[in-house]
Every structure is written in C-alpha cells, then in structure tokens.
C-alpha cells in the first residue's frame, strides 16, 4: 500500500496528493508519470509526476476531478492509502540543451509544466511561463511557478485575473515583440497543445508537448496509448510522453481520447447511485 501523507485542495476541482513511494521517488524525473490504482475495483490511471522528494521518499500528483477515478481519489485524504502506485514510467523530458524556453501550462497542465520550468530554471535557462485558466478561481501553483521562471504570465478566459485571452495570444505577442526561444514546452488539453504547435510552426521553434493518453500498463504492453507522430505509430507510455508537437497527429489524438466517453458517464452514474444509497 502507498500512504497518502498530504492532501491539498488547490481549487474546486483540482487537488494535490503527496504519496509515500520511496522506490519511485528515487528515480523520478520531470516529464515522467506514474500509474495508480485506488483499490481492487479501481482502474489503472496514469498521472504525470508534479513533484518528488527523494529524501522524504514521496511523489506528488495533482489531479482534476473529471471522471470516476479522480472523483474517488478526491474522497481520500492524508492517512488513506492507495493500493498501487507504479513508476516512474515514460521517458524523462530532455531539457539540457535549452537556454531560453517558454513553458506553457493550460489549466491542470500547469501542474505538469511546473516541474519542467523548475528544472530548467535550476539549470540556469531563462524561462518564461505562460499559464492559462478558465477564470481566477481555477488558478493553481501561482507562487511556485513565479519562483521557477523569469516572467510569469497568467491568462484567463474571462479576464478575472491576469490578461484576458488564451495562452497562444500571449505567446504570439511575445514572439511578435521579438522574443527568442530555443524551445516551447506546452502542456495542457490537446486542443491547447495543438494551437500552440500551430502557432510556433511558422517560427520554426522546437515545440514539445506531453501526451496523456489512455493506457493500462504503462510499459508498452497494451498499445492503447498509440499516437501517430510523423506518420508513425508510437506508444505514449514508452516512446513519450513528450513528443515534437509539430509532428503529432492531434486530430487523431483528440478522437482517441474519447474512446470510453460513454462508459465514463455510465461509471459516474453508477458511482452517484451508490453514493445516493449510502446517503439514504
């Protein structure tokens, strides 16, 4: 069992858990992910590593409550334990060569973009961070991000905080103002990563995206996480999760992300019924 030693509610739909997993913590690197299973009935679900502490032997995961597993996960707190916690999986991000980088986090993607910005910043790269959220209430990790970059730009869809607009607007503004980046790292919803990749393509800036595909084992066994990159089928779990955003077939990835949409609704209804019974 893997004890949850800390839980923080970051906003209405986003929570953080710090999990005791010494073996995973020893090897974890930014860009890698873990797979957890809550209990015997649970699904195996991948989460990108948001932070790790080798001394404490812990790994931090930040999740948004979107479906069955995250809803159930959010019902747990410090003192509870997860049945399974496997990792670190996937390839670590290759950040060494970059001197000047724009790191972009869309919504929950900020949680995954943050360790990358932190590592780049520690390595001495100049980091601009652009984080986009729906509104002021959805903002996460603002202080942590501010400490891990030279400039932090907050964008909100409704203008309730920072500048009103999408992350792509800010990036375009910076590029048009003559900002030079060796690379852009974009992590967030598929549509956002696609938009960033399309924006940087004419500029020829290397753009790295992180694919959080549906998968079971995370070791290359199921092939559920197939993603087409430069016309070739890759497995996000072992060949990624980072890929060149200019080469990823996002349209296919978006379609594939909906494979179990119907079942996901069914599972949620099932859970709601069970909870209703418990409350009765």
């Amino acid at each position: 069992m893997f004890p949850i030693i800390r839980k923080e509610i970051l906003n209405d739909t986003v929570s953080l858990i710090e999990v005791k997993a010494p073996y995973v913590a020893r090897k974890a690197e930014p860009g890698q992910f873990i797979i957890l299973r809550i209990d015997e009935q649970g699904e195996r679900v991948p989460f990108t590593i948001a932070d790790f502490d080798r001394d404490r032997g812990t790994v931090t995961v930040i999740f948004q409550i979107v479906g069955q597993t995250t809803r159930r996960l959010n019902q747990l707190g410090a003192g509870d334990a997860l049945l399974d916690f496997v990792g670190p999986l996937g390839k670590a991000s290759e950040l060494e060569e970059f001197k000047s980088v724009a790191v972009i986090g869309g919504g929950l993607g900020t949680a995954i973009a943050y360790p990358q910005a932190k590592k780049l910043h520690q390595m001495g790269a100049k980091v601009d961070m652009i984080n986009g959220f729906r509104n002021q209430d959805m903002i996460i990790l603002k202080d942590a991000c501010r400490e891990s970059c030279s400039n932090l730009y907050i964008m909100t869809d409704d203008g309730s905080n920072g500048q009103q607009g999408f992350v792509t607007q800010k990036l375009e503004e910076l590029l048009k103002a003559g900002k030079h980046y060796d690379a852009v790292i974009a992590i967030g919803p598929l549509v956002m990563m696609r938009a960033v990749s399309e924006l940087t393509r004419p500029y020829g800036i290397k753009t790295i995206v992180s694919m959080n595909s549906i998968m079971i084992d995370g070791t290359g066994m199921c092939g559920g996480c197939r993603v087409t990159v430069d016309g070739e089928t890759k497995f996000a779990c072992v060949d990624g999760p980072d890929f060149d955003g200019h080469l990823v077939d996002f349209d296919e990835a978006i379609r594939r992300s909906k494979v179990f949409a119907k079942e996901e609704r069914q599972a949620t209804e099932h859970l709601c019924r069970l909870e209703g019974m418990n409350h009765a």
Partner: peptide, 26 residues
C-alpha cells in the same frame, strides 16, 4: 484494440464486471 489491451482489460482489470469494476471495455 491489440489483443493484449482487450484481454488485459477483461482478465486482469475485470472489465466484464464494469461498472462494479472501474475499467471499461467497449
């Protein structure tokens, strides 16, 4: 599906007992 994914969902993850078990299969 690969047969691996299909069979793993069913056998290891017990998708045949969805939604009692969380893992779906279509």
């Amino acid at each position: 599906y690969s047969a691996n994914e299909f069979l793993t969902r069913i056998n290891l993850m017990k998708a045949y007992r969805f939604p009692e078990y969380d893992t779906p299969i279509r």
